[in-house]
Design a protein around this nucleic acid. Structure first.
Lengths: 155, 155
DNA sequence: GTAAATGCAAAGCGTTTGCACGCGG
DNA sequence: CCGCGTGCAAACGCTTTGCATTTAC
């Protein structure tokens, strides 16, 4: 119902359509499970573990299997619709890909809600040791989000 | 032999002694395997996976078991003698802890040799979104080290 | 109708645990 | 000589694979 627009974040509906479109483009069949998968990630404002996704899937498709979840998560990552990410504890999580621009993440260590920000340390005239050919980097900030700081947020 | 001096990196010998000292301090027994573990990490100039450590251990202790390696790696991490770290692929690795100062890492994606550097993006007046209470951060740069760039480095 | 996607079960991998023996203190 | 540390084996959690059935196209 709520038609949110000119934000840099597109509407849930549009995100779902985008992901479904990507899947068709790659010659994939649009199954109910994959539609649901797209919806789950469109709604989520943070990272989801395979288990999280599975749990949300089972609400509508009680007999979905774990391997279907994994299969589709991997396929969606490979084609860039999802970002996959190993958290500090080594756990694998996924989130809808922001393909628009380079950014980094501010992640709530409690609820794992994730905000993006544009500052990138690599844009500084960074003096690095050795003579490495730089390929890649990783920068994340971990903290407690406002809601999780607030005690009135009943557990 | 080499009397380590004002370098921030101490000699292998001293590192081994430090780690052994830490273990005694915590009431641990100094077994041959644990001595060897200390030597392995003193010699390594990058991160080692449990498998790497196991492989090096078996050279001298052919019937060492994987669980002993894991147990000691975990214990050494818990007491701060080792840093543990999940790589971008989610694989767990360990390296001798630099307890001296805050730093970040430049990691060779080929050989995983690791250099440390002092620049820290959090020291900038970093404008972050939301009102998170910052707890932690992670910053790593990945590249190819000079040796791995050089074709004359025979495989 | 045909090939792809699913669900089930079983295997795979990395890591942990329980227990009897061996060794450090 | 007491008890921690070890090695073996088995369990564990997470992820992947093989195969028959179901489903999208």
């Amino acid at each position: 119902m709520t038609e949110h627009k000119h934000e840099h974040k597109q509407s849930h509906e549009a995100m779902v359509q985008d992901m479904i479109h990507i899947m068709s483009q790659h010659g994939w069949r649009i199954t109910e499970q994959r539609k649901k998968l797209a919806e789950i990630f469109a709604k989520a404002d943070g990272y989801l573990s395979p288990k999280d996704v599975y749990d949300q899937m089972t609400v509508n498709y009680p007999n979905v299997s774990f391997d279907t979840v994994y299969r589709n998560l991997r396929l969606l990552s490979e084609m860039g619709a999802l970002e996959q990410f190993y958290f500090m504890d080594g756990g694998l999580k996924f989130r809808a890909s922001c393909t628009e621009h380079h950014h980094h993440h501010l992640i709530c260590v409690n609820c794992e809600k994730t905000l993006t920000f544009d500052y990138c340390p690599m844009e500084q005239s960074l003096h690095l040791p050795g003579s490495f050919k730089i390929m890649n980097h990783r920068f994340e900030v971990y903290g407690v989000c406002e809601e999780c700081q607030n005690p009135n947020a009943k557990s």
